[in-house]
Simulated scan of single mutants.
Amino acid sequence: MKRTIFALYGATLLTFATQASADTPNQQASVATLNDGPYLFDSNSGQQNAQWICAGKLKQTAVANKRLTRPNHCGELPEPMLNPQATEVLADSYQGVDKIVALSDVHGQYEVLIKLLRSNKIIDQDNNWAFGKGHMVMTGDMFDRGPQVNEVLWFMYRLDRQAKAAGGQLHLLMGNHEQMVMRGDLRYVNDKYQTASTLLNRQYQELYGKDSELGQWLRSKHTIVKINDTLFLHGGISQEWVDRELTLDRANRLYRENIDKTKPELKQDELLNFLFFGNGPTWYRGYFKPDFDTQELANILNYFKVKRIVVGHTSQTRVLGLFDNRVIAVDSSIKLGQSGELLLIEKNKLIRGQYDGTQTPL
Rank of each mutant, 00 (worst) to 15 (best):
D324V: 12
L233F: 04
L170Y: 10
P25F: 04
V181I: 15
Q354R: 15
Q125L: 11
H234P: 02
G321W: 02
A102Q: 05
Q169F: 02
R250A: 10
R352A: 14
G209P: 01
Q295T: 15
G168N: 09
A20Y: 01
G236M: 10
L301S: 07
W241H: 04
I351M: 14
F16Y: 10
V63H: 02
T18H: 06
Q47A: 11
F323R: 08
V89N: 02
K164P: 00
S43P: 00
A329T: 01
D269P: 05
K347L: 03
L116Q: 05
L254T: 00
L254W: 02
H73F: 11
Q239I: 13
L342G: 06
Y287E: 11
N190I: 04
Y188N: 13
V319F: 10
M182S: 14
N279E: 14
A166V: 05
G37N: 01
A86G: 02
R70W: 00
G10N: 13
Q359F: 07
V106F: 06
Q295E: 15
Q194G: 12
L343C: 11
R67A: 11
D331L: 10
Y303R: 10
M180I: 08
T282I: 15
N190K: 01
A329I: 02
L13A: 07
D356G: 10
Y110F: 15
H222G: 07
D105E: 06
D243L: 05
Y255C: 01
V242D: 03
L34M: 05
T24A: 08
G140R: 05
L246G: 03
V189E: 11
T294H: 09
R183N: 15
Q216F: 00
S339P: 00
H177N: 15
K349E: 15
C54V: 06
W129Y: 12
L82T: 08
R250D: 13
L266E: 08
L207C: 07
I237V: 15
T18M: 05
N127S: 14
H107G: 04
L336N: 13
Y204E: 06
I123W: 08
F323N: 12
L297V: 12
L77M: 14
Y94R: 01
H234I: 01
F274T: 04
K115Q: 15
Y284W: 13
G146K: 05
L153W: 12
D260C: 10
H107T: 03
V319K: 08
E79K: 03
D191N: 08
F232S: 06
L207M: 13
S104F: 07
F155Y: 13
C54R: 03
A298Q: 14
Y110W: 11
N72P: 07
I237N: 07
T61D: 11
F276T: 09
K347I: 02
R256G: 04
I351C: 05
R118G: 01
N49Y: 01
R285Q: 12
L34N: 01
I334G: 04
W283N: 14
A329R: 00
P71M: 06
T139N: 14
L272A: 07
E240L: 05
D36R: 00
